[in-house]
Amino acid sequence: MTVYMMQQIHANAWDKRREQFILKEVCRGRRALQILAAEHRTAHVAETQFTDTTDALLHNEDILFSQTSWDGQSSIRHSRLPDSVDVLPQTQVSSAFAELLQTLTEPLSHLPQDNPVAVLLESSSSLPDAQVRDLWQQAWLESDLTPPMAFIPGHGLMAVDHWLDYRIQDKSVLLVIALQIAPRQPDNTAEVVTGLLLGNRLTQKTLPPIALLHRPELSRPDPVALQEKVEQAIDWVPLRTTALQHLWLAGISGTSEGYQCAIVAQGNPPLASVDPAIGIHNINEFLGNPGRAAPWLAIAAAAQAISRTPAPHMIISGEQDSESVWITVVSPLASHKENTA
């Protein structure tokens, strides 16, 4: 009896430790970032200023047609920003940064002057990355914004996943700047500029969020694997399997394995609840491939749509130089509080 009781105590202690570990990992997985501001500019606008093009994106307004590219090639099927004709790429990038900072000055100005701003800069351009970074720093200095700014390493939604793991209690806000201007191979591409201001729910109490960006999941191009990741992505929110109303496909070639897997997933819950007539938005089809800006454009559009009509959106986006895809959810503000795990 004594031996049995000792074994039982040991087993109970192991079960309790395992339960605590699972709970901690679930809470860690369900971390999310506040979306404090979301701006985007595409060829849907006729003027140079940042204006709300969310309706055009939600209605899949097709502006992908053959035209002369930035480097003078004729009959290239792509979409161009309205002020890109006869403008040098470096001038266009500088103007885009200046205009984007004008729209972001208002939320950034409400932050404490010593509140750090971490910048993730993503660029698909014929300009070298170092030159694009220099142009951003120049625009930041000319904007007279006072918060200290520093670049962070990484790219795409991997940077969000890393931030949720290691910087969830950081006082810094995360500013994502993504653009594709004058791409090296313009065929079937889209010129876009996107800005997202993200904050930690544990530390950011100054600005009111408009939506939440949840933990992304990376899937290999396999139907079973992608279905599992889609289900995991909605579980991180968490959502009912019938809750999704919009699906964004961004930066995924129609001939890729990842795209075929995404099509298969649309026939299964939770994506089966999305109305294909009005709820599916394949950015590559009506705008062109936004390159590295693809996931950020979809997230910004989803956040702006949620600010009008609260409903969860899922984004499936391509991974650069890979057949794999990322899956994430943008949701209206949740009632539950952030866990410190």
Results as ranks from 00 to 15, higher is better:
A250W: 08
L212N: 07
D321V: 02
C261N: 05
E217H: 02
N200Q: 12
A190S: 13
T194S: 11
A305C: 10
I263M: 14
R220V: 12
L287W: 05
L247C: 06
A277G: 11
V230A: 01
I315N: 12
L212T: 05
V192T: 15
F286W: 14
W296D: 10
P209I: 02
R215D: 00
A311H: 11
Q260K: 07
P238K: 00
V192N: 03
A305H: 14
T189A: 15
V237N: 06
T189R: 15
K205E: 08
Q320M: 08
R292P: 00
L218S: 08
D321H: 07
R220G: 11
L196P: 02
S324H: 08
R201Y: 06
G251A: 05
E231L: 15
A301D: 04
E257I: 00
P238W: 03
R292V: 05
L218N: 10
A293K: 00
G288A: 12
P270Q: 10
T255L: 14
R201I: 01
A262Y: 03
A301P: 00
I316T: 15
Q204I: 01
R220P: 00
A298I: 12
A250F: 07
P223M: 11
E191Y: 08
Q245N: 14
N200A: 03
V193Q: 08
I315H: 07
L247R: 06
S307K: 13
L207C: 13
A250R: 04
I315E: 14
D321N: 12
Q260G: 13
L226V: 09
P221N: 08
N200D: 10
A294E: 01
A302R: 08
A302F: 05
A277E: 13
P208K: 11
W296I: 02
A302L: 08
I210S: 12
I299K: 02
P276K: 01
L197A: 05
L249T: 09
G267M: 12
A211L: 06
Q227K: 11
A262S: 10
L297R: 05
G291R: 01
Q320E: 12
M314I: 14
T206C: 14
L297M: 11
L218E: 11
I263D: 04
E257Y: 05
L297Y: 06
P310C: 09
V193A: 13
F286A: 07
P238D: 01
T203V: 08
P270W: 09
S307H: 11
K205L: 06
T203L: 06
I210M: 15
P208N: 12
